[in-house]
């Protein structure tokens, strides 16, 4: 068991590997991985992620450097050079580590995270928001706009049929001007969008990677979320909660238009 030479080599190999891993994580971590940003609150989320990346990267780097140094330095010792830390020193090191982590972790949550979380989830949409009702079903997004009267028609599950996927009650007059669409959502740039998320069957998840929006649609509940797109263009909509064998192809599109284009599209849609 006592082949010292092979241990010295093993110690050095391990130390080099650990150092390489540390540097590799930092190098690969510093590249830009996040999809391009296209919403206001997304900036806050990106700051949170970047802060955590930087802080975690720093801690990973120091951890691996120290670990590699220990392996290199003490790998070749045949007599121990330090035996038992006093309880005081153990407690000191623990407290130091806890303080650093508390500042990074809890500090990050309270200082950077909570304001964004409160704005995104815990606040109601501003009155100027364009309301869109998205009803998920197994493997499609039913989109509905309130139309000029600003009110959504009543829906009841009993009326659902092939040509009436949302079960809109035809007798309800506010339903007559509702505009229904499939898998494509049209919104106006720099104008808040309030999404009323519902589901007909299983749990899906309304995920806009570029706009940093994700909210599960829970059957039996109508969940409101709002965001402000601040870049025009088409962005992809994906489902982020396992919903059956079509989960991977439930692709939708969010088209962010200028107000004029949106009005033109609305007119075209109403009498088209």
């Amino acid at each position: 068991m006592e082949n010292r030479a092979s241990y010295r080599v093993a110690g050095k190999c391990l130390a080099i590997t650990v150092w390489l891993i540390g540097l590799g994580v930092i190098a690969s971590g510093s590249r830009r991985w996040l999809p391009s940003l296209a919403s206001e609150h997304g900036a806050g989320i990106d700051v949170m992620i970047r802060f955590t990346m930087a802080a975690a990267g720093a801690m990973i780097l120091t951890g691996h450097m120290v670990l590699g140094f220990f392996l290199w330095r003490f790998g070749s010792q045949n007599k121990i050079s330090f035996r038992l830390a006093s309880h005081r020193m153990e407690r000191a090191w623990s407290v130091a580590a806890v303080l650093v982590m508390a500042v990074v972790a809890e500090g990050g949550v309270l200082v950077l995270g909570m304001p964004v979380w409160a704005k995104v989830f815990a606040s109601a949409a501003p009155s100027s928001a364009l309301t869109v009702e998205v009803t998920t079903e197994q493997f499609a997004w039913n989109v509905r706009y309130a139309g000029p009267d600003g009110k959504f028609g009543r829906t009841s599950p009993q009326l659902i049929s092939l040509d009436n996927p949302l079960g809109v009650d035809p007798k309800d007059d506010s339903a007559k001007d509702d505009i229904v669409d499939l898998n494509i959502i049209h919104v106006v740039v720099n104008r808040p969008v309030k999404v009323r998320l519902r589901s007909k069957d299983v749990i899906h998840s309304f995920f806009l990677p570029n706009l940093r929006v994700k909210q599960d649609s829970m059957p039996g509940m109508t969940i409101d979320l709002w965001f402000v797109p601040n870049k025009t263009g088409t962005f992809e909509l994906a489902c982020a909660e396992l919903c059956g064998f079509g989960h991977y192809e439930m692709r939708g599109i969010l088209i962010v238009m200028t107000p004029e284009d949106f009005e033109k599209w609305l007119l075209e849609k109403k009498n088209g």
Partner: peptide, 14 residues
């Protein structure tokens, strides 16, 4: 750290 923090979990969940 990323997933326990609600804000960054919005983007990274699932």
């Amino acid at each position: 750290l990323f997933l326990g923090n609600a804000t960054s979990d919005i983007q990274l969940h699932d």
